[in-house]
Structure formats: C-alpha cells, structure tokens
Design a protein around this nucleic acid. Sequence first.
DNA 1: GCGGTTCACTGAACCGTTTCAGTGAACCGC
DNA 2: GCGGTTCACTGAAACGGTTCAGTGAACCGC
Lengths: 330, 330
Amino acid sequence: MPQPRKRATIREVAKATGLSPAAVSYALRGMQVSEETIERVRRAAEELGYEADPIARALASGRTGTVGLLCGSLEDLWQQALAVRIGRALKDNDRYALILDAAGDPARERILARQLRDQRVDALIVQPVDPAAAFWAGLCEGLPVVAIGDALAGARTAGEVVFDNRAGVTLALEHLRDRGHRRVAVLTPTRASTPDRPADVHVLAEAGRLGMDIEVVTAPHALAAATEVADTVLSAGHRAFFCFADSIAYGVYAAATERGLAIPGEVAVMGYDDHPMSGLLSPGLTTVDWDIGGIVRAAVRLVMGAADGGTPHHGRIVQAPQLRERGSVG
Amino acid sequence: MPQPRKRATIREVAKATGLSPAAVSYALRGMQVSEETIERVRRAAEELGYEADPIARALASGRTGTVGLLCGSLEDLWQQALAVRIGRALKDNDRYALILDAAGDPARERILARQLRDQRVDALIVQPVDPAAAFWAGLCEGLPVVAIGDALAGARTAGEVVFDNRAGVTLALEHLRDRGHRRVAVLTPTRASTPDRPADVHVLAEAGRLGMDIEVVTAPHALAAATEVADTVLSAGHRAFFCFADSIAYGVYAAATERGLAIPGEVAVMGYDDHPMSGLLSPGLTTVDWDIGGIVRAAVRLVMGAADGGTPHHGRIVQAPQLRERGSVG
DNA sequence: GCGGTTCACTGAACCGTTTCAGTGAACCGC
DNA sequence: GCGGTTCACTGAAACGGTTCAGTGAACCGC
C-alpha cells in the first residue's frame, strides 16, 4: 500500500520548536501559553505544512466543528433548497454541514442519525420523517438536536422550528373550499413505512370541520414519479388537488398538461412550501409559504447556541403560514 | 462535562468472549478466524450493544466507507439534482456520501477538498469550479478522484465523466443562429475568482466561427439574483440568451415576465443542462441535455471501482449533448 | 523571607480501533 | 516422527491528537 502522502504530525512541530506536543496543541488553539510561544509554534507549523488531523482530533476530543443535517427526503426541491441554505449559513458560522438524505425512510433515518452521532457531529439538524420514533429520545442525550418541521415526540431537543401545520392546512383547505372545491385529492409524500404525520392528521380534522370530501393519496417527490401518481388520480375523476409539497404539485401540472387539462380552468392545484420555481409556472402555483429564510436563520441560531455548549435554550419557534395566491386554484 | 453516553468498546466485547481485542476486530470483519468464533463474537457484540466507532476505525485504518461529493455550486438546481441522485446511487452501493458545496468559490473548493481528504473519504467525486487549479494533482496522489464536467488539468484522476462542451456549445449557438439570433447574451455562472472554464472558451471560438455577436455576462444560480442580472441585460437591449445553466435561464424567464416580454416572441432563451423543471415552464425551455442518469451511473461505477482499491481504470467517459427543443427560442 | 498564587509548560495516559509480527497447536506428507 | 505449513489467535505498537495532573519558576502581599 502506497503511503497516502507523509504529513507532518504535532510531534514534529514539537521537536522543531523544542516544546512538548501538549504545548503545541495548546498553542495552536490559543490556550494557556504565552503570546510569544503561540507565534513561534504558528510559524513552525506553517513551515512544516502542519495541519491538525481532524480524525485524530475528533477521537481525542470528541468534537469536530461539524453539524449534521439530516433531511427527510432530498428528492423534494424545497428540502434541497433548505439544505443548501442551511449549509451556507453554517459556513458563515465557520462550521461545515454534513448533508445526508433519509430518502423518506424511517429505518434509514435511524441509521443515519446514529451514524452522525458516531461521527461526533457537534449538533444535528433534522427534518424528521418519523417524529414519533422512539430512538430520538436516546439520541438527544448528549447530542444537541434541532428539529425542523415537526417536534420530536418525547425527546429533549435543543430547539425546534415547527410549522403550524394546523393553520397551514386550514389556509389551504379553506382556500379550495372558498373557490368551490368540495371534493379534493390530497397528495402527501410517500414514506417507506407510514407514520401518520401530524400534518396529515390535521387534514382529516379540518376537512371534517369544513364539510369537505377528502381522498388522501401518497406520492413521491420526484417529478416523473409524481406525475404518474397525479395522472392516476386525474383518471379517477379528481379535479382539485392539495399537494403536501410543491414538488408534488409540479407533478400535477405535468399530468394535467399531458391530458390537455387547463389550470386553473379544469384542474385546481394547491401546493405547500413555496419553492422559488412555483412563481415561474403559468399559472403560478398557489401555495402555503413558510418563510424559508426565517427557518434557516432560526435553525442555525438554535444550533449554534447549542453546539457551543451554551445553555440548552430549548428554543421553540413556531412558523406561521402565509397563503401565496398565484392563480392555480380556479 | 456530561458523558455523551457510555458505549461498549471492543475491549469489553473481548473480555466478554475471553478473546483478545485483535481477535474481536478480525471476527467482526470476518477475517482469519473460525466460523464458530465469529458467531460467538457477533452474539456478544449484539448483547452489549457494541458498534464499532467509525472515528477510531478511521484513525487506525485510514478508511471510512465514505465518498466525498464536492459540488461546484449547490445553488444550481441541476447540481442539486445530480448530488441527490449520486447520493442515492452510492447508498445502493453501501457507501454514504458526504455532500459539500464549494459555492462557486475556487478557494473554498481547495479547502473543502483537503478537508475531505483529511476526513479519510475513500474516494472523491468532484464537479470542479476550477479544473485548472494546481492542487488537484497533489490531491489525486493517494486519493481516488472522479471528476464530473471538466477534466482536472495535470492530475492523475481515477476517472472522468466529461461533457463534450464544444459540441454542446455548438448545438446551442447554431440553434440560436438558425432561428435568426445573431446577437446573443451568454449568461455564465458567477465564480468568485474567474478561471475561464473550457466551456466559456468554446463559446467565443464557436461564436467567431458562426459569425455571431456575443456578450458574456456572469450570473448567479439563485433565482432572485439571476433574475436581477437578466433584467440588467434585458435593459441593455439584449433579446437572445444562452444561459450556461438552466437555473440561470429561469432568471431570464422571470425577468422577461416581469417586463411583460413574451417568450419566445420577444425574447429567446436557451438553457444548458436540462433540469426536470425546464419541461414544465411555458413555453418549455429549449436546452442542452446531458443525460443526468448516465452521468450518475458512470460516476458511481468509476468511483466504486477506484474506492475498492481495484486497478485505477482511469476511465474517461465523454458525454454527448442532445438538443432538447421545447419552444423558448423563437 | 515566607506561604500562596499564577504562569508556562511537561509527561504520560487516553480516545477506540487496526495491524504487524509473532506463537503455539494441529495437521500434512513421507 | 520430523520438518514444514496452515490455522486461530495474541500482545503490543501504532494512528495523531487532547487532556489531566503535576512542576518549577516567577511574582505577590505583608
């Protein structure tokens, strides 16, 4: 096996400066040593091309300067956008994000969450697929976790940015009803096994209250696959859709267009999320906006507070929905 | 400092089975030990809830089962799609991807590439911002690197999936010229410092050959920002656009719509990439398709071959472009 | 000038694995 | 029954840092 390149170790820097490795270690982190020594060490390190090995550092100290970002399903364009923006915001805080994709699978979510903990991430941001899963409680011991979307049941998280899904669902369904749609197909994201998300529960409750006739169908986020599902639902006679993700609504657009059905004339579509592309379609997709910028800021603030070992605020931030009316509902 | 939860170590498993830690280590990886011992160790490990610590393992062995994925700019929807699909393909090969975002900045690209190497990724897939940077050569020693998009200059990569940008540019410019557009604004992705990408060079060469009048303008991928740039270019009188990423073309759509200019009647737009959303716009975005599925398959095949320590194939796969005509060029 | 601090630094243990170089025992052919 | 392999396993040294418990010197007030 060819050496993957010989790098300087902390011991060589120690030798070069006549100090002990311990002193070098402290100096490089600016602790407990004189200014002059710090400078000397810094110079020697530079000269030798020394850079601390993050793996060794992680093993010894248990910290990494890294934040895990576990997404529910990265096939969702909105979650993609969220991940990218959180990644950039963390970068501005000198952390770097490890982005992972649970692919809508609760089992995979459990595995990846554990894996991130074992990787010694300083904190974890998660958009849970199954917020009711039991393992969250254990995970939250000793690892600051910030949840986005739904709160984790029975877990001492370091913070949560939750969506007021009850309000969001009400907004969407009332809008559809006000425009004369009583019979509505609800397209909700596919999950490998299907824990009922709080949001789904609200749909049924609200539909009952509003006297609407609801059919819930699961659909994938990927455009081609969502289009297929939408097509099936169209052929079942549905003409009004409430999609639990803008990505899925795009599938309805595609399916309707394929069949030559006009939006909003013949088919009404309502989204949920407000992805930037939704405004570009014609007609624009009427949707429920959660203020992605605010979510990013809140999540990063919570996670930075927790990762620095500060007091676990347990901030709970509730996002209020806003109807973004664009014309896809007749 | 509260213990982040006491986990079983390999030594405890050794004690429980009456073996040495070394034997347990071998047994868990199914090497050099009797079937019976393997079974015994496995059972003890299960009982104690033992799971090998990936950090310690990485430090000792230098391997992690992880593949780094360094994206040029994750603000680009197409690159987002690529990253997600590569991530899922790697998962199917029992690796997991660390997705990082260079944010179009060559300096950051260098830092992150080094960081991934230090994290002991088994291999690196990179969509280079600056393929001509000198550090690639050093990085490729001892770390299998697969490049997507442009080949890395002077570096011994493990493989490349390169785009035939010359052909792609020709396709796009000829299409524009054939439809009567001689004066064309080329919107190319912003880069923090601006190494001329091979693709940009081709534009000028081809434009010369075709007798076209080209103005190159850089633009960000993010919709709002791209829209701003597009608006400026529109106000400078341009009415034909060749965007070096579909994401940027979306900005032209937005800007044109805002000004009440019809596509393709008053403004012609040509994209590059073919993101799924491009087919949903009206009119659909005419673009150059690179077969994202093929790219993913090729990159993953190359990286799996290299990561397993197999012969460094140095496969070079050249992607041929295909014109996807949808109606955004008059 | 003496006890008590503070300061700058050291030695050694430790983090949890892997891997290298053995080591005895069993087995082999002859 | 003897040299040579193979087999299953062990002990100890890595891997490259951090951290804990000192240690001696300088400095302090009184």
